[in-house]
Design a protein around this nucleic acid. Structure first.
Lengths: 183, 183
DNA sequence: TCCTGCTATGCAACTCGTTGCATAGCAATC
DNA sequence: GATTGCTATGCAACGAGTTGCATAGCAGGA
């Protein structure tokens, strides 16, 4: 359980509304910790009740009020205590790997359909890699001296880049293997 | 949601009891689809009710009865239909990445503690890689001709190997970055 | 003009996943 | 002789995550 902590980190990097947080999760943080807007709103309310964050209601004309959240000293304490706890092994839910092994129990038509799916999946990951590299150029390479926070964000992004490159290479291997079965 | 499907694949590769499945999930399948024995037992019961698997009670002296599960024709149909559905993007829950970004909001002592944790985490992944490579030699490299199922299992294992190597390289990068902040 | 999409938050119902506990006998270690 | 660990399954309670829906006004395109 660490959605709370991911939210604390994100709000410390930049305070904002639940909606803004949800969009950040979709983009950067979501690549290593996914969350829907429903989860985020619910958890933010609970964190507010527990005094980890404070909300400032901002009235806007023409659209609903915004609740702008910031981390309190108590929330920061919760975060630093959590940072000292042992790191839990990462949880992976890799459906494609299950399907590849499952392809052994399907016929040639099924495997042909899987190849098409893997190609689509590969294109998605290629797009993600391109997006990461563009973000890296924008935020880290063309910038001057980086502070500690930026350097830490950069090393996490480099992990994302390495992951996507690894996935693309592996998917090429998968496609070759799947095509090789038909021959 | 695809624990059912992961179980179907595992039982098609090799029928067995819930306990045996739980151990397989811990070892091989669990690296891309985690599940506890509780989940597995509960889902197996539901799958039995739905007619996807059949169970054969095997009395054993000195220990509880074993329920040996096999996939039915209906279960196989469920699996092949699922194989033709679009692949869902993988879900990752990578606590360490959150902690690394969180380290920007902690002091030097906290970052020193994180370095120790990353080193321990790295050792775990190194052990996993060693285990994968041993399994690869045993099951795939020293064997003769491989059938379709074995070749698909092998390409998934190669994905695991590539993942672990990528993680180890990245963790070296992380350690260097964390140490560089202190200077 | 209608429809889609964006900002912005939230309820309700449901399923999935986790944790703690319980049984039970055998084998091995201290 | 006591404790720990392994096989083997399961209940109960709780917490996390998903899905569908609702509100509401503004902007832009077909």
């Amino acid at each position: 359980m660490a959605l709370e902590h991911a939210i604390l980190v994100s709000l410390l990097e930049q305070p904002g509304s639940g909606y803004e947080l949800a969009r950040r999760f979709e983009r950067s943080i979501g690549r290593f910790w996914t969350a829907t807007h429903q989860q985020i709103y619910r958890v933010l309310r609970r964190m507010e009740t527990d005094g980890w964050v404070t909300a400032e209601e901002i009235g806007q004309d023409g659209r609903p009020d915004k609740r702008h959240y910031s981390v309190t000293a108590a929330g920061r304490g919760v975060l630093t205590r959590w940072l000292r706890e042992p790191v839990q092994p990462e949880t992976v839910r890799h459906e494609l790997a299950v399907k590849i092994r499952g392809a052994a129990f399907d016929d040639d038509a099924g495997r042909a359909a899987l190849i098409v799916e893997v190609e689509r999946y590969r294109a998605d990951h290629e797009a993600t890699l391109t997006r990461y590299l563009a973000g890296e150029r924008r935020d880290f390479l063309d910038a001057g001296e980086l502070d500690a926070g930026q350097r830490l964000q950069h090393v996490v992004l480099r992990g994302g880049v390495a992951y996507e490159r690894m996935v693309l290479d592996w998917l090429d291997d998968v496609l070759e293997t799947l095509r090789g079965l038909g021959r």
